[in-house]
Design a protein around this nucleic acid. Structure first.
Length: 420
RNA sequence: GUGGGUAUAGCUCAGUUGGUUAGAGCGCCAGGUUGUGGCCCUGGAGGUCAUGGGUUCGAUUCCCAUUAUUCACCCCA
């Protein structure tokens, strides 16, 4: 059996690469317009970073990480997301002494050991933004507006923005008590994961999809109704500012987020037509994360966008991508003398920034022409003994079939000019 | 971790009610007279019918297992 790509990984083939190049470029362009700078980070980190940064109680850390021991006995993990690494780098490089806030974006692969389905892979790609050092609601709105602009640029429609506030540690612990009280006589009847969450992270019970659990949760207090005054004010300002720039949103009291580091604002952009993995993008504020990773208390907010899901959505909406550039000219050769001449000519053309393909198969003229046609070249030209002797050749326009005699000396000028 | 579907050529799929050399379209390569593509025609290469076992005189076909793939649950991007 031939070796295949590992489960959950995919090759991005030349026929699709223009889609990837396009969205990568557009994303970078939009981020730069907001003053965000690209950062590139290691694919693997010490396992402890994710245990602390993402949270020990999360599914991601508990069962989805690619963790192994390296030859020096260190525990290493392939990054399951991007934020923790950025925060580590922020601390490690003393970015708190840079002009604040620090605005970063990245385009990464991430790794989670999960069962594969539509829109979910074990190696997947994320675009992300992290804004560190800004606590104001305006920061939340800026980050969301990056996405909004990005989607507009790409021509994506009908992505729904859901937003919620999960408060700060203060109001959350008060809420957790409230929720535990409410559930105290019901928890026995609920599922096992809810039972463990009851002790370790009650808030996440809200997220449970079990029918019996959902029934018990119908009248449960919502966190959003019990956040403290500061958090409430923050949230109200965020929504007001979104309205001011005409970004539509829905408040979804059930967004809780599976990563522990989130505080206050959480949000996601959801599609309804790419399957059950419809969350194209998720993000939120993480005001305690830098401190939890060993830095000074620093507010932060960011998002991660699933590129595979983005492309699924774009393709399902029938969005057109820029097509590959096609060659300007094909240089064919026939006979002994033509080889060196065609090589030199092709070299000169390429040196003048002309996209040129030449024969390197030694095939018949007919086969060469067929090949040139398949490549979609604009012009073709065949060099043989006659052409070399007369220093002239027939330049064929492949669209019209029209043929013109042209001196080889003027070919380059002609094509350069033609390109404009 | 759990459950369902699928597995025949590079791709999309036929097919064999269990029987001899397994097919098509597309793609690839070559040819259709002298050195010019697109349409058309002809030919060729390419498959241990996912792997291993079982039933059978005989299995690509039926059964089981494994693997892969896909969809869904959980969770997430």
């Amino acid at each position: 059996m031939p070796i295949q790509a590992p489960k959950g990984t995919r090759d991005i083939l030349p026929e699709d690469i223009n889609q990837w190049n396009y969205v990568e470029k557009e994303f970078a362009r939009v981020c730069e317009k907001f003053g965000y700078k690209e950062i590139r980070l290691p694919v693997f980190e010490y396992t402890e970073l994710f245990q602390r940064g993402v949270g020990d109680t999360t599914d991601v850390v508990q069962k989805e990480m690619y963790t192994f021991e390296d030859k020096g006995g260190r525990s290493i993990t392939l990054r399951p997301e991007g934020t923790a690494g950025v925060v580590r780098s922020y601390i490690e490089h003393g970015m708190s002494s840079l002009p604040q806030p620090v605005k970063l974006f990245y385009q990464i692969t991430a790794y989670r050991y999960e069962n594969v389905q539509k829109g979910r892979y074990r190696e997947f790609h994320q675009f992300g933004v992290e804004l560190l050092g800004a606590a104001d609601p305006a920061a939340d709105v800026e980050v969301i507006s990056i996405l909004s602009l990005f989607f507009n640029r790409l021509g994506i429609k009908n992505l729904k923005l859901n937003i919620n506030s999960i408060g700060c540690p203060k109001c959350r612990s008060a809420y957790n008590e409230l929720l535990k009280n409410y559930l105290s006589d019901k928890i026995e009847d609920m599922c096992d994961t809810c039972k463990t969450r009851y002790d370790r992270n009650p808030m996440r019970i809200i997220d449970c999809k079990e029918e019996t659990c959902k029934k018990h949760l119908i009248d449960a207090p919502a966190l959003l109704d019990h956040i403290c005054d500061d958090c409430r004010k923050h949230f109200d300002l965020v929504t007001k500012k979104l309205e001011a720039i005409d970004i539509n949103y829905d408040i979804d009291k059930n967004i809780v987020r599976g990563l522990d580091y989130y505080t206050r604002t959480v949000f996601e952009f959801v599609s309804e037509n790419i399957g059950t993995q419809g969350t194209v993008c998720g993000g939120g504020r993480y005001d305690g994360l830098v401190e939890a990773c060993g830095g000074a208390p620093t507010p932060g907010i960011g998002f991660a966008l699933g590129v595979e899901r983005l492309l699924l959505e774009m393709n399902s909406q029938g969005i057109e991508f820029p097509v590959h550039e096609t060659p300007d000219i094909y240089i064919g050769a026939i006979g002994e003398k033509a080889g060196p001449v065609s090589e030199k000519l092709a070299w000169q053309l390429r040196s003048n920034n002309i996209y040129c393909i030449k024969d390197i198969m030694g095939r018949s003229v007919k086969a060469q022409m067929k090949y040139a046609d398949k490549l979609g070249v604009r012009y073709s030209l065949i060099l043989g003994d006659n052409e070399i002797e007369s220093n002239k050749a027939q330049l064929k326009d492949m669209k019209t079939g029209e043929v013109k005699d042209i001196s080889l000396d003027t070919l380059i000028d002609r094509l350069v000019k033609n390109k404009g």
